[in-house]
C-alpha cells in the first residue's frame, strides 16, 4: 500500500473517532489537546487492526500523534519492523 493511501486511511480513522478537525493540515493534535487519552487509545486500537501492527507505550509520544502525517510515518516504520 502506498504512502498516500495509508494517509487517507488514517485520516478516515481520525475523522471517525474525533470528527470536525482538518486532519490534512493540523500538526498539533496533541499540543492543542484535540486528542485526549481516550481518543488516542481508540485510534491505537483501530490502527492496530487496520495495519496489523502492535503499538507499545513507547510509541505514545506527542511527536507520533501530533498529525495524520506523523501517524502515517509511525505506521510505515512499524510495518517495516522499526521502532
Amino acid at each position: 500500500m502506498n504512502h498516500q493511501s495509508n494517509l487517507e486511511k488514517i485520516i478516515a480513522i481520525l475523522q471517525d473517532i474525533c470528527p470536525g478537525v482538518d486532519y490534512k493540515t493540523c500538526q498539533t493534535l496533541i499540543d492543542q489537546q484535540i486528542l485526549d487519552s481516550f481518543a488516542i487509545l481508540s485510534i491505537v486500537a483501530e490502527l492496530q487492526d487496520a495495519f496489523d501492527v502492535y503499538l507499545t507505550p513507547m510509541d505514545i509520544q506527542p511527536s507520533n500523534f501530533n498529525s495524520a502525517q506523523a501517524l502515517t510515518a509511525l505506521m510505515e516504520r512499524k510495518k517495516a519492523g522499526g521502532k
Binding site: S37, L41, V44, L55, T56, P57, I60
Partner: peptide, 9 residues
Amino acid sequence: DYVFYPISL
C-alpha cells in the same frame, strides 16, 4: 503514561 497506557496497550 506509566499505568494507563501500559495497561491499555
